[in-house]
Design a protein around this nucleic acid. Structure first.
Lengths: 393, 393
DNA sequence: GCGACTTAGTTCACGACTTGGAAGAAGCCA
DNA sequence: TGGCTTCTTCCAAGTCGTGAACTAAGTCGC
């Protein structure tokens, strides 16, 4: 029962949000175009825009020549109205980036970490935050928010059960909030990469998307009806641990036959080596070597991998009927660059005809560095949702 | 970009909807309780309720003795304000049922069909509609709408690709609308059964649910965040065609290793017979016989089935992180009645710990006759969403 | 059996909102 | 400079939810 009352103020906030979101997402627009798109009256648009301009959220940005009349004045969200910071907490480093509202990178701070204890991570995120703010002309009060992406299940702003980091029930947002008065948002890394792709990459314009990430393991971000779907308790999207070979290879999660053990780089290399193949170096080097090898065994392993991946995609196609599947992750991109067509064809062998005909399978466009970018959108989402109202400190 | 302006009238409609939905879903409530639940002011509740009563949507229903003050007057949606009709189109019969708004069955009409051509189905649904209305005291103008459940992919009120019926791009709603001026809604049968379970059965109170239906084949209805999820083009939920044994048994869909060929009654019996087991009679009799047999082979086959079903459930648990999985369908219920505990335990062997700990696995409560009931909720949903405004004819 | 008390529901003036239409402003062209 | 087109703003009217005061309808103590 998610029913919420509406008051007269909600109406204005909602309309401010509609206008602001339109301006932000659909580029510079004139008031005239806004009246058409939002179906608000010209009077209301003018009124609301004037308010947004007075507050500094929106600014005029040139004009468009008309056909014999007064030219339209274009409006955009003022890129320097506020700034946002995105942080990516990885297993080996913390990256913090400062953006303006147009999502241009203004500063970046990387810090390697050896033991990713919560305290260590909090320390480096806060240091990074100070560093990027200090190295730019931005004052701390101008920072709208800090978005942090962590690989793990994030529930209610507390990081819980981050397997790769060895974390359990860590209240990361609260810990960060002790060191800064900038509003903090914490979310899952895969979701944030998906968010970045949805806004600025391969997901633009679509509303029902699965962003499938294949690296050493495999995971995904689900987007349903235009917004991220996290399930009942924020752990939806564990695509890599879907049973695809009943009774098959043992996965690190303990189950048998998980997709991840067949398409994740670790599993692929393992299968290759068990079959007698030899590759050296770190995981990524080895994976590239495998992909570029012209041995028959390597070709078989790769073809098998495509087959398994296709079955995994087909399961998504059948179950969630997305309009687009975006393949990413470092291993996914390497696989996809060479074998996307084969993958597409193979998905057709496993999926039902109808949903298969409706889905397009594409590669991520932003690369793996987009996690911090995605995290930085969290405060922006909030700003747009609230119609430009800045959260109080 | 689902942004919509809000006008002053949307506000009232939205608040009417909030109040009406609360009254409908949370039983008789007093105005006082409504102010608490909706967080509207007492003045607004009084005002809106007076309007709803004047229109006849809501009525007073006794009062509750107080503890030293004026007694609260209970409000309910007037069961006889309007009536709704639900129809279930099966492969062998058409069932039409008339309900009041409290979803009491007032009349029922069954009609066997031999060749379910669209024309035949339309004819029998319309005849059934006339029959149930005629056999009751209800006037046609009092019927709020007709909901029709068909097994197939239903897109934009046109039935497309109903494999079991041999239909392709049949504009069922339009065809029905030619024979009646009662508003027609068409939807998928599995979703309607899921809807019925969500409102009146095992799904009550939950918002993120998968209703998994196992009969001869297998399908599901997904409920995400309180409302049915249909994917980009209405075909989400094809759980039965998820690859679970890569390279396994051939499915009727053409792919290999679909879940359905391992847990659907047809597939189970097939596996039993291939292993040397013997059962006779029709599918359902044979399935019951298999389940009740105390032969070792039968026990193995059933245990295997539970294993496969558990893997299928685990895939749902991992991917969509539901709070509840509801098992239904005739074969699912037969399996579940005896082996639910084994199934629950086995899911734990395939699913990730965290989402597994958060999900409860239960049986359908309504039986397979609830499809028409679910279909009949479609007009009710619309009534509640519109705040009690009756759609014009 | 009467009055104080308690709780439920209603009325009303007020401020906030959107709207359509009219008036105003801004640039273009002759 | 004057007319024209295209945006933008102003204004009166109508709608809505709210808080405070008010009415209704009981219980309880004496």
């Amino acid at each position: 029962m998610e029913v919420r009352r509406t008051t007269v103020r909600d109406m204005r906030r909602s309309n401010r949000s509609v206008i602001l979101t339109s301006i932000y997402r659909e580029g510079p627009l004139s008031r005239q175009e806004l009246t058409v798109r939002t179906s608000l009256s010209a009077a209301s648009v003018s009124n609301l825009v004037a308010e947004l301009i007075a507050e500094g959220v929106v600014e005029e940005a040139g004009s468009v020549e008309s056909e014999g009349g007064r030219p339209r004045v274009l409006l955009r969200v003022a890129p320097t109205f506020r700034y946002v910071v995105g942080a990516e907490v990885g297993e080996t480093r913390v990256r913090v980036e400062l953006f303006d509202l147009a999502m241009n990178v203004l500063a970046r701070a990387d810090h390697p970490i050896s033991s990713p204890t919560p305290e260590e991570v909090v320390k480096h995120v806060l240091e990074g935050l100070s560093a990027v703010v200090a190295s730019s002309e931005v004052r701390s009060e101008q920072v709208l928010g800090l978005g942090v992406a962590v690989s793990g299940v994030v529930e209610d702003n507390a990081v819980v059960d981050a397997q790769t980091l060895g974390w359990d029930a860590v209240p990361l947002a609260a810990m960060l909030a002790e060191g800064t008065d900038i509003p903090v948002h914490v979310d899952n890394g895969a979701n944030m990469l998906g968010q970045a792709e949805m806004w600025f990459g391969a997901g633009r314009g679509a509303t029902d998307v699965v962003v499938a990430l294949v690296g050493s393991g495999a995971g995904s971000a689900l987007v349903a009806g235009g917004s991220s779907y996290r399930g009942a308790r924020s752990s939806a999207g564990e695509w890599g641990h879907m049973t695809i070979v009943y009774g098959g290879r043992r996965c690190r999660c303990g189950a048998l036959g998980c997709l991840e053990t067949y398409v994740g780089a670790e599993g692929v290399l393992d299968r290759y080596r068990q079959a007698g193949g030899e590759v050296g170096g770190d995981e990524e080097t080895a994976f590239v070597e495998l992909l570029e090898s012209d041995s028959e065994l390597a070709a078989t392993i790769v073809a098998d991998t495509i087959g398994y991946l296709a079955a995994g995609f087909a399961n998504l196609v059948n179950l969630v009927n997305p309009e687009r599947i975006v393949l990413g992750g470092w291993a996914g991109l390497l696989l996809g660059e060479k074998h996307l067509d084969a993958l597409r064809a193979e998905v057709g062998n496993h999926a039902l005809r109808r949903p298969y005909a409706q889905v397009s399978i594409v590669l991520c466009e932003l690369g793996r560095d987009a996690v911090a970018l995605g995290a930085a959108t969290l405060p922006v989402v909030r700003l747009l949702r609230d119609g430009g109202a800045v959260p109080p400190r």
